[in-house]
Design a protein around this nucleic acid. Structure first.
Length: 589
RNA sequence: GGCCUCGUAGUUCAACGGAUAGAAUAGAAGUUUCCUAAACUUUAGAUCCAGGUUCGAUUCCUGGCGAGGCUACCA
């Protein structure tokens, strides 16, 4: 409808005033005012010099005349409120019924291929709450981009090498007694994480001992024997020492096994995996290339740098003096490798926390300086940290929220609340367990995704398990109730040709439904699942208010047919919205 | 010190530069012979401060104040 208005208005300004106007400020009318769509005329006063109310009335007259669906208008200050006929909305509902793909853009032969990177963990400890935000954001953005007609490839870069994993390895050798996930009855990632903690404890103890024997703290931090061991191990790793490599493979395999279980439960997946142990070599080649092009330079000690001071940034290290690679080196290699693997790729999204904003600024700039024209297609999906009411999460201080434990807790709460409400009688135990999972994950995912990615989240475990108000389970519950209505209504309901007028609440719901395609498009453009989440909640509120006031399963076939169709349409859009967030929409709960 | 992000009801979140700043929670008061009360209805409560830009600012600009992050030969 907006498009029709814009087209007509544009032609009007052309013929009447001989002016090219293509941008019009059209928005849904606020509920306090009468009307469906509102044209803000203030911006047009610069083009046509008139009083706002006069111009608004003039345009209103024209639109009523020119467009059959425009029924009437009213003017409040510089706002032209346009009323659309009920027939238009009824027609829209008919189309909705016949279009299972409503709001989504189908893929075509010319669809762009986009790569979305997310998760990208270190392999020395289990995933925590921060990773959950990362995973949910990345997976949801991938869904949204897919719904917008793109070929989306999901991937991650795994930090599988480095001092962090060596720390776990050293501790395992010292204290592990050949413990395995099976013998310890622990998930693989939890086991490796346990030794990372043990390393740190031992490390701190050794520092304390050294300090008490008169060594400076800085010196002690460097000299602690166990750290030296880890460094030696890293050196051996780089020299391809067979034993070290075998242990490394072993422990990483445990971690991957544990991660896979967590990902499965979270409902995220990856089309491919990149490993730093594979990409850092290409990174080094890239640095050589930059050196030969004169973009990078070597300092006296042999370390390689890039000078970005002309761009308002710093000098950045690219290779250490001993020739080994750093984070940036590897990311250069990874980016290039991906474009080699996907030559037709039109863009990459990096889902990484905002503490690395600077890093990605530098990375993209270096790639641009190296002459890769695809550097302009790279996007850092930056998100804020997850805080707890008790303060910041710190792994070393044990204040992290473990991802698996959190999902356990959400599941248990869903179970408890469902049992108290007692609505699941007659289900098998298996069905119930599956539903507890669906509801628990719905609560967790919605709680995190409804917040604007760039903002910090305060994660209150108590509030997150709340199932009333603006929450995932509330939306899921509405969907389940709609399915209940559809079951009771039967399937014999298609035609509502003779209906000519709509209830006010029905119209409100239809208006909200009509905004779905634009919402998906905006979410894709802004990489923001929060837009979808807030839309879904808005729709549910509209619907609940409607169903409270207007009975759906009435005698009159025409009316019932219309209301059931509306109900089904709402169900469809709720299900799609939740789907974009990676949340399941149960038929019963 | 320099750079980046964020400051909205008691609390957690909304608001392409648009109308009287929306919800949810917590508080107060109601609604179940009727499609699932995990619901609905009513009520009270907020833009950090000072300037500027303009028809119009929570939004853009400048300066404060406050919170966080980055500023590693860690990843």
């Amino acid at each position: 409808m907006e498009a029709v208005l814009i087209k007509n208005l544009s032609e009007y300004f052309k013929t009447q005033y001989d002016k090219e106007v293509s941008a019009f400020e059209i928005q849904p009318t606020k509920s306090q005012f009468e009307g469906d769509l509102t044209l803000v005329v203030f911006p047009l006063l610069k083009i046509v010099s008139k009083k706002p109310t006069d111009l608004a009335a003039e345009l209103g007259d024209f639109l009523v005349d020119a467009i059959p669906e425009v029924e009437a208008y009213n003017v409040v200050q510089g706002f032209l409120n346009i009323q659309i006929t009920d027939a238009y909305f009824i027609d829209f509902l008919t189309q909705l019924q016949q279009n299972p793909n409503f709001g989504f853009i189908p893929k075509t032969a010319t669809s762009d291929t986009l790569l979305v990177e997310y998760s990208s963990p270190n392999t020395n400890k289990p995933l925590h709450l921060g990773h959950i935000r990362n995973n949910l954001l990345g997976a949801s953005v991938a869904n949204i981009l897919t719904a917008s007609g793109n070929n989306v490839h999901t991937t991650q870069i795994i930090n599988d090498r480095g001092i962090h994993i060596c720390k776990s390895m050293v501790a395992w050798q010292k204290f592990g007694n050949a413990e395995t996930p099976t013998s310890a009855k622990l998930k693989g990632d939890a086991l490796v994480g346990k030794y990372y903690v043990l390393f740190d404890q031992q490390y701190k103890k050794e520092i304390a001992d050294l300090v008490s024997s008169g060594v400076s703290e800085k010196q002690a931090k460097n000299d602690a024997p166990i750290l030296q061991e880890a460094k030696e191990m890293l050196l051996k790793w780089e020299q391809n020492d067979a034993d070290v490599r075998a242990l490394w493979e072993q422990m990483n395999a445990w971690v991957y096994d544990g991660f896979a279980k967590t990902y499965l439960r979270l409902g995220v997946h990856f089309d491919s995996y990149y490993y730093e142990s594979d990409t850092y070599v290409l990174g080094k080649e890239t640095v050589d290339e930059g050196l030969s092009k004169g973009i990078f330079y070597t300092k006296d000690d042999g370390s390689v740098w890039v000078d970005l001071t002309d761009d308002g940034l710093d000098e950045k290290l690219l290779l250490r003096s001993d020739g080994t690679s750093v984070y940036m080196t590897q990311d250069l290699g990874t980016a290039r490798l991906r474009y080699t693997n996907h030559p037709d790729m039109k863009g990459m999204v990096y889902t990484v926390g905002n503490e690395q904003d600077y890093h990605f600024k530098v990375l993209f700039l270096i790639l641009k300086k190296l002459g890769y024209d695809w550097a302009s297609q790279l996007h850092h999906l930056s998100y804020g940290m997850v805080d707890l009411p008790s303060g910041k999460m710190k792994s070393r201080e044990g204040t992290v929220v473990d991802a698996d434990a959190l999902m356990d807790e959400m599941h248990a709460t869903a179970k408890q609340i469902s049992q108290e409400l007692g609505k699941l009688d007659g289900m098998t135990d298996e069905e119930k367990e599956s539903l507890y999972h669906t509801i628990g994950m719905g609560a967790l995912k919605y709680y995190i995704l409804k917040v604007d990615p760039k903002k910090r989240i305060l994660f209150d475990p108590q509030a997150s398990v709340d199932f009333t108000g603006n929450t995932g389970p509330f939306i899921q519950y509405t969907h389940a109730r709609i399915q209940s209505i559809l079951r009771k209504a039967g399937v014999d309901t298609i035609a509502f040709d003779d209906i000519v007028s709509l209830h006010e609440k029905e119209k409100a719901v239809l208006k909200t439904l009509g905004q779905f395609p634009a919402t998906v498009a905006a979410a894709a453009k802004q990489f923001s699942p929060a837009l979808i989440a807030n839309y879904a909640y808005d729709l549910v509120k509209q619907y609940n208010s409607y169903y409270q006031e207007v009975p759906i399963l009435v005698e009159d076939v025409q009316t019932k047919s219309l209301r059931v169709a509306l109900c089904a349409a709402v169900g469809q859009v709720i299900q799609k919205s939740l789907g974009l967030l990676g949340i399941e929409a149960p038929n019963r709960m």
